[in-house]
């Protein structure tokens, strides 16, 4: 229904804090774009500028091809789901959902029809006569979603909508949001600091750091080819192992494949490691091989994480299933050539 185009958007708060330092993102129609980054990196600020709740200091924001810098949130035809839901405490669920439509002068029977059909989609029908304080956290979350959906806006904006739910509910809602967004086909921007949420929800993933975009693209592309050490350590859990290289050399490596000349950091993901006594065929094709000493074991069930000390620094190694290894064991760790990442001294991928 709508595209969202940000061009070199900046935000300087009255106090002088530059929260967003020039961000350009093009979100295609019907896509779910996730902004992810550590706390304080400017995600909310950016989202609120798209919503029209915060003025844009420089650059432009266009919704559906039309620059909206100068118009307020009402005219932008967006709907927002807030972190603390922001339901009107004195209104029944029905009125909470109907309020936006009433303010826009929608006819009464049309409001009723839309509220009821949205309530049906979200399984809120039996709650319509209740007030927000009579609902559980998960139900409030659904009402907040309902309030956004019922308006049928051009763009949905979500600011960490699941962060107040417990882990199990968060997982369910994540799936549900994704399905709803797909079926409604409404362009959405979703802010989160949780990389798992970001990976699973995003059509377009934007990784932010200190007011700037570090990398944007399809989630798996970012996972496979992180553009910087920041992205490498932010996306993926546990994060990528990063070991310093000294003039293309690496002391702890028993064998090290050819290294790009200007590389300063070597990275490989815990899940891309193999632990074997015998090098077998791997060593031949130029894999990394290093020796590590196990310092701790974290069995999760389907997999176990080994926290190890290698000569170059600490690393995490994932092994499938349960493991007999224990703290103090020495083991050789391999990582295939094509699973290695190299970063320059500025942190950028080389």
């Amino acid at each position: 229904m709508a595209t969202v185009d940000l061009k070199d958007v900046r935000k300087v708060y009255p106090g002088g804090v530059e929260a967003v330092k020039g961000v350009s993102i093009a979100i295609p129609d019907k896509a779910l774009c996730v902004l992810v980054g550590p706390s304080g990196c400017g995600k909310s600020t950016l989202l609120r500028m798209i919503a029209g709740l915060e003025t844009i200091s420089a650059g432009s924001c266009a919704i559906d091809g039309k620059v909206v810098n100068a118009i307020g949130p009402t005219e932008r035809d967006i709907a927002m789901v807030f972190q603390n839901y922001a339901l009107y405490p004195h209104m029944k669920v029905y009125d909470n959902m109907a309020y936006g439509l009433r303010n826009r002068g929608t006819p009464k029977d049309e409001i009723d029809r839309r509220v009821r059909s949205t309530a049906k989609t979200l399984e809120l029908e039996h709650l319509l006569e209740r007030r927000p304080r009579e609902l559980s956290g998960g139900q409030r979350q659904r009402v907040a979603m309902g309030r956004a959906i019922v308006r049928n806006p051009k763009v949905f904006l979500f600011d960490e909508p699941l962060s107040n739910l417990d882990a199990k509910l968060r997982g369910q809602m994540r799936v549900e949001i994704k399905n709803l967004q797909r079926s409604l086909g409404v362009t959405s921007v979703y802010v989160t600091h949780d990389q798992l949420e970001a990976m699973t929800l995003a059509d377009v993933l934007v990784v932010m750091n200190a007011g700037l975009v570090e990398q944007s693209g399809a989630p798996l592309d970012i996972y496979e080819k992180p553009a910087s050490t920041f992205v490498a350590s932010f996306i993926g859990a546990p994060p990528m192992n990063l070991l310093p290289l000294r003039s293309g050399q690496f002391e702890g490596a028993v064998t090290l494949p050819a290294v790009p000349g200007n590389a300063a950091t070597l990275g490989f993901r815990p899940e891309d490691c193999e632990v074997r006594v015998e090098a077998g065929g791997i060593a031949a094709d130029g894999a990394l091989r290093l020796l590590a000493r196990v310092e701790g074991v974290e069995p999760v069930g389907a997999e176990s994480f080994l926290y190890c000390q290698a000569a170059g620094g600490r690393i995490v190694v994932r092994v499938p299933g349960r493991t007999e290894l224990q703290a103090g064991d020495q083991l050789p760790v391999f990582a295939r050539r094509e699973k290695l990442h190299f970063f320059g001294s500025d942190g950028k991928r080389v």
């Binding site: 609120r48 919503a51 949130p73 009402t74 967006i78 807030f82 839901y85 922001a86 009107y88 309030r147």
Partner: peptide
């Protein structure tokens, strides 16, 4: 009164 509530009302078209 939480700022979010004020903003929710603005998004909902309340002047």
């Amino acid at each position: 009164i939480p700022g979010e509530l004020v903003e929710a009302a603005r998004v909902d078209g309340a002047g």
